[in-house]
Amino acid sequence: MSKTDDAKVNEREQEGEATLRAGVYDELRHRLITGRIAPGLGISTRGLAQQLGVSQMPVRDALSRLAAEGAVEIRSKRKIIVPVMTPELLEEVMHCRLLLEPEAAALALPAIDAKLVRQLRAADAAIDAAIESGDVNSYMENNYAFHFLIYRARGQGVLTRMIETLWMRFGPLMRVVYGRVGTARLVDQHQQALDAIMRGDAAGLAEAIRADIGDGRGLIDVEE
């Protein structure tokens, strides 16, 4: 094998490793966003590696990135946790969500087509079914899907990534809250968002998203 061939093999291996690390990071990020990693409990790099079918190295790399974003705390090699939400941090996160998400939805409106509307209706139907059946995991997954189908309509830009980071901080707390209060108190505000989309009403869509965020905050007040 020539030096050129060796270089190509090395390049492919490096690309494959980078893709693997990115995939592990995105998966852990998604698990945090949807509340599948609980706050205050230890995170096992070995356990996550086994679940994902990878070595511990890309898991450690992903956790280091998540720690830099404030989503996890690495206290030692054997002590990694999702931090418990403080009242001060909660207020900051909610303030940022209220600033960014209505704006992201309004900006995305021109890019929402008939195909995306069908996907939004399917996600909303799944949310209604989850509320009816008390399936918290399904509710979390489909609520995330509904919101980010809207926010990503014009592409995965900086604004959407910032909102994902806020959800990554917020998701573990909400999974605990929903697990305690159940789904009976959940209100589906998404029909208002869909109605605004069909009217082409950017201000109405922003207000629907704002109301939805407020409902989530209200559940935390009930829990407290």
Rank of each mutant, 00 (worst) to 15 (best):
S2T: 11
D5R: 11
K8N: 08
E13L: 11
E15G: 14
L20M: 15
L20W: 03
R21L: 07
V24H: 03
D26H: 14
H30G: 10
L32V: 03
I33N: 01
I33S: 00
T34Y: 01
G35N: 04
P39W: 03
P39F: 06
G40S: 12
L41F: 15
G47E: 00
G47I: 08
Q50W: 09
Q50G: 07
Q51H: 06
G53E: 03
P58L: 05
A62N: 07
L63C: 12
L63K: 09
A67I: 04
A68H: 00
E69F: 02
K77G: 14
K77W: 12
I80F: 05
I80V: 02
I81P: 04
V84C: 04
M85V: 08
T86G: 05
E91A: 14
L99I: 07
L100W: 10
L100S: 03
L100N: 02
L107M: 09
L107A: 12
L109E: 00
I112R: 05
L116M: 12
V117M: 05
Q119H: 15
A125P: 10
A125T: 10
A125N: 14
I127R: 08
D128I: 04
A129Y: 00
I131A: 09
E132I: 03
E132L: 14
E132M: 09
S133Y: 05
G134R: 13
N137A: 15
S138M: 12
Y139S: 07
E141S: 10
N143M: 08
Y144H: 15
Y144L: 06
F146H: 07
L149I: 07
R152G: 09
A153H: 01
R154W: 04
G155E: 13
G157C: 06
G157A: 02
R161D: 09
T165F: 07
T165P: 08
R169F: 08
F170S: 03
P172Q: 05
P172C: 07
M174G: 07
V176L: 07
Y178C: 09
Y178G: 11
Y178F: 15
R180P: 06
V181H: 12
A184E: 11
A184C: 08
H190M: 09
I197C: 13
R199L: 11
G200K: 03
D201A: 04
G204K: 01
A211C: 02
I213K: 00
G214K: 12
G216A: 04
G218T: 09
D221F: 08
D221I: 09
E223G: 05
